[in-house]
């Protein structure tokens, strides 16, 4: 603890101006985080607090002017570390113009994405400016947030990207994910455009495009499927709980603590 506070004390602070508001932040902070501290809203798609920024969607672009005031350029704020005297505009006409173009390009890949259509409306982008690559229901913008979450956080390494250019897609190796995917649904949760669709059947958890088909564990009380068995097995190795609890869904665990149910209170 003391070491941490010492290093914090030594950390160099830099001044940065965002939309005419000045803030002092530790060196190395990204422009996006500095803006967040000032409560300035910059739209993001591929950014997640738990992962290092990747800068693949480019929606968070801002206009940066250096301390001399001579140079101005556009860059993605999520990957840009602050330096002394930077002046940043997040809503200038130039930024809006660039952001609009980026949204239009993203829409050509994911024409049905609600998030993108809302952004298009906000920034006045034309959703049909570029011909859509896939006229189907595809919503993926290839930001790889799901891939990074699965590989770096969950550690399942069930998905990755395949092929190149127009045909690039997020997929499990050879569309077979039986061994790696644990069905934790983190990819679905982090996906900014809602491109990943899971089918919850009576006894199975399926993601069709990736060949995922997992067996669901059913609750011993209410007979409802509640979680993939592989996910439960993984968690069982991490924490110690009563065997009785592993067989019950969260709803029934609550009622197990109710008075008068067949199960005695588990505490």
């Amino acid at each position: 603890m003391s070491e941490e506070s010492e290093t914090k004390g030594k950390q160099e602070l830099v001044k940065v101006t965002i939309d005419d508001q000045t803030i002092e932040v530790p060196k190395g902070t990204t422009l996006l985080h500095a803006a967040m501290k000032l409560d300035i809203n910059i739209p993001t798609l591929c950014f997640h607090e738990s992962l290092p920024p990747q800068g693949s969607c480019r929606v968070c672009v801002v206009e940066i002017t250096d301390k001399t005031g001579k140079w101005t350029w556009i860059d993605a704020s999520c990957v840009y570390p602050v330096s002394e005297g930077l002046s940043v505009q997040t809503q200038s006409p130039n930024v809006i113009k660039h952001r609009r173009a980026i949204i239009e390009l993203l829409l050509s890949r994911a024409p049905k994405s609600e998030v993108l259509l809302l952004l298009a409306e906000k920034y006045g982008a034309n959703p049909t400016r570029y011909t859509a690559i896939d006229k189907g229901e595809a919503n993926c913008i290839l930001c790889q947030l799901c891939v990074r979450t699965c590989n770096e956080i969950v550690g399942a390494q069930a998905i990755g990207t395949a092929e190149r250019g127009l045909h690039k897609k997020v997929i499990s190796p050879f569309s077979i994910a039986k061994e790696n995917c644990i069905g934790c649904t983190a990819c679905i949760h982090v996906c900014p455009t809602g491109a990943i669709v899971a089918k919850l059947g009576k006894e199975s958890f399926e993601i069709e495009d990736w060949g995922v088909d997992l067996k669901m564990a059913t609750c011993s009380c209410c007979d409802k499927p509640f979680a993939p068995t592989v996910h439960l097995e993984k968690l069982k190795s991490q924490v110690n709980l009563k065997n009785q609890l592993w067989e019950m869904c969260p709803e029934c665990r609550r009622s197990a603590n109710k008075v008068g149910t067949p199960y005695s209170p588990i505490i």
Binding site: E49, I153, V154, L235, Q238, R253, R254, I266
Partner: peptide
């Protein structure tokens, strides 16, 4: 912390009291 959560539902499945919920609002 919502911003850090990746929605893997591990906490939901290990809670002995079943008091963590997955909300449909904003997932």
């Amino acid at each position: 912390v919502d911003e850090k959560c990746i929605g893997c539902t591990a906490c939901l499945l290990v809670c002995p009291f079943g008091v963590i919920q997955k909300k449909t609002e904003g997932d």
